[in-house]
Amino acid sequence: MAARVRRLSRFNIVSLTLGLVFLYLPIVILVVFSFNASRLVTVWGGWSLRWYRELFNDSAMIEAAWMSLRVAATSASIATLLGTLAAVALSRGEGFKGRTLFSGMLYAPLVMPEVITGLSLLLLFVAINAERGFWTVTIAHTTLTMCFVAVVVQSRLGSLDKSLEEAAMDLGCSPPRAFLAVTRPLIVPAIVAGWMLAFTLSLDDLVIASFTTGPGAATLPIRIYSEVRLGVKPEINAICTLVIALIAVVIIVASLVAKLSSVKGESAAPL
């Protein structure tokens, strides 16, 4: 961008503004109205933190939020582990047959409609008679998000020079050591980014969670959705604002991690 110091034309400014307004106006309205003193969602009654106070007294909502955070953290961690292993196997295992088939199968959940994923998992859990609750939602989210992790990590692995590991072996590392000493520090940013992506995807999911959850194990999106059907309370605005803030923090941290590790991955490799 620094290379092209061309000023934006009037058309560009207008279209950019319209685009940003289209994307962010609803969110801005939601955030602003979460600080509304009035009970009526559409009438501005001055600034207040009243709904945040009320939110923290709403134990069902807090419980749902806590449930969502636990599901997101657990499923993101499992998905990161499995997705990274899958990515390594698919990009390094040159010899094995059906690699293309496996890659394709790994990526299928990316384009699969969530309703189908949710329904098929529900049928599975019913068939094996699993008690639906925290673990079924977590497993369902893991199956959804691990392919995202795999895609992110695999693209990083693919961009790495294969001779780096060979150089490490040439300099005295056994193949596993070469992976740990050279490849691992170079893919850590991708793994972190994959975890964050999995976390936000899980936090956000309504469809799969509502298929696979059980009584007493509502996630935050399920809770919000059921509340909104009875009418939008300002309290919902408050919880949504908090979720937006959390996701914004996660994304900012993820991009900072990626940036820092590419600028200086100092001591990233414990030798």
Partner: peptide, 27 residues
């Protein structure tokens, strides 16, 4: 490879991008 008293200089150098010059040589 890691058990041979032979070393190789690669065509594209294959320097470890996350290590500085000193640590590359000391690797």
């Amino acid at each position: 490879p890691h058990e041979r008293p032979v070393n190789m200089m690669f065509q594209n150098y294959a320097l470890f991008p996350h290590l500085n010059v000193r640590d590359n040589i000391a690797f």
